[in-house]
Amino acid sequence: MPEKHVAPSTQFGIFTVGDVTPDPTTGRTPTERERINAMVTIAIKAEEVGLDVFATGEHHNPPFVPSSPATLLGYVAARTERLILSTSTTLITTNDPVKIAEDFALLQHLANGRVDLMMGRGNTGPVYPWFGKDIREGISIAVENYALLHRLWRENVVSWEGKFRTPLQGFTSTPRPLDGIPPFVWHGSIRSPEIAEQAAYYGDGFFHNNIFWPADHTKRMIELYRNRYAHYGHGTPEQAIVGLGGQVFMRRNSQDAVREFRPYFDVAPVYGHGSSLEDFTEQTPLTVGSPQQVIEKTLAFREYAGDYQRQLFLMDHAGLPLKTVLEQLDLLGEEVVPVLREEFAKNRPANVPDAPTHASLLALAEAEYTREEVTTG
């Protein structure tokens, strides 16, 4: 029999922004079909090399292609067995919360529970009017829409009225969440304390993108979330559920990594034409070098984030060819993540919770139900 997979205390994985960018070394731009199929290949490879999570962003503008994350993840679900399927952004502002509730509950059933998602507002201003929303009300929309989504997954019949969509009367979202357990939700933000507050209020996870900003900014955001999580009575600050992003490019020789990645960095749609590669790697979590350098820099994240539950890396952007990305995943899965797993487990306090999964959330709900039965007699 194959060895049973044990859920890790910290999940390691990758996220994609799904950009269609010319390869600056060849001038060739992949077709949309090629880029979408490459994302599927990358997800399957992630499972093969022992990673835990594949996450996709959501974009509705060129040069990006993942406009329908649930469609992409549903296809990946059919091609994988263990991988947790997530979003690295679900636009809680411009998507109807009813549709989010239905799409991801259905995906839960198809993927046998291997689903969670990250709520975000995105970084593309024009998307708001495209979907009939006002960017000036972005935070308010995010708060209201998620409050409704939270109820839709937990109440069989919902009557609701708010400011930004039509009222609901006696509405039931279908299908219901698998085993009565809603998908775990992360709230993703780079700079908005209101989103950290929202995550803390609901006792959900907080994910800091951690690819642009210096460590002191990330530390302040995570500390805010942890302290407010405790304020709302969900546990101690150390028990809050934290995830981080990161960016890496590796070769066995660090000089080779820098030389190969530089032309991609210089034109990347997310940070190109700005700081030098050297300045950016010094001032942000981007690591370009050897596997050992990636290990050392990633381990240092705990110095300002504390013990945390999820680490995702961005590896397939800026026009990097698929062959190169797959080579990166081999290095990540074979040489980096096994060391990170071991080091993250060392001296981890017993009261720090493991990364949430459908199975762990189901077990928690069953234990709570048993306690209530005992208490009520």
Rank of each mutant, 00 (worst) to 15 (best):
P8A: 12
S9Y: 12
V20A: 02
P24S: 02
T25N: 13
E34S: 07
A38G: 10
V40Y: 12
K45Q: 14
A46T: 12
E47C: 03
E47F: 03
T56N: 04
N61A: 14
F64C: 04
V76Q: 01
T87G: 05
T87V: 11
T89N: 12
T90V: 13
L91G: 00
N95Q: 15
P97L: 11
E102F: 08
E102K: 07
D103W: 04
F104P: 04
A105G: 03
Q108Y: 02
A111P: 01
G113Q: 00
G120M: 07
N123G: 14
T124K: 07
G125S: 13
P126C: 11
K133E: 12
I139R: 12
L148H: 01
W153Q: 05
G162K: 05
K163R: 12
F164S: 03
F164L: 00
F164G: 01
T166M: 08
T172A: 15
T172R: 11
S173N: 07
G188Q: 01
P193E: 09
A199H: 01
A200F: 04
G203I: 09
I222Q: 01
I222G: 00
Y225K: 06
N227K: 15
R228V: 10
A230R: 09
H231M: 14
Y232F: 15
G233K: 06
G235L: 02
Q239E: 13
A240I: 06
L244P: 08
G245T: 03
N253V: 14
A257V: 10
V258Y: 10
V258C: 10
R262A: 15
S275P: 02
T287K: 00
Q292C: 02
I295W: 03
R302F: 05
A305R: 01
D307H: 15
R310T: 01
D316E: 13
E327Y: 11
L329R: 04
L329M: 15
L329E: 02
L331Q: 04
E335T: 03
V336K: 00
V337D: 00
V337Y: 01
V339A: 08
K346H: 03
R348S: 03
V352M: 05
L361E: 10
E368C: 13
R371M: 14
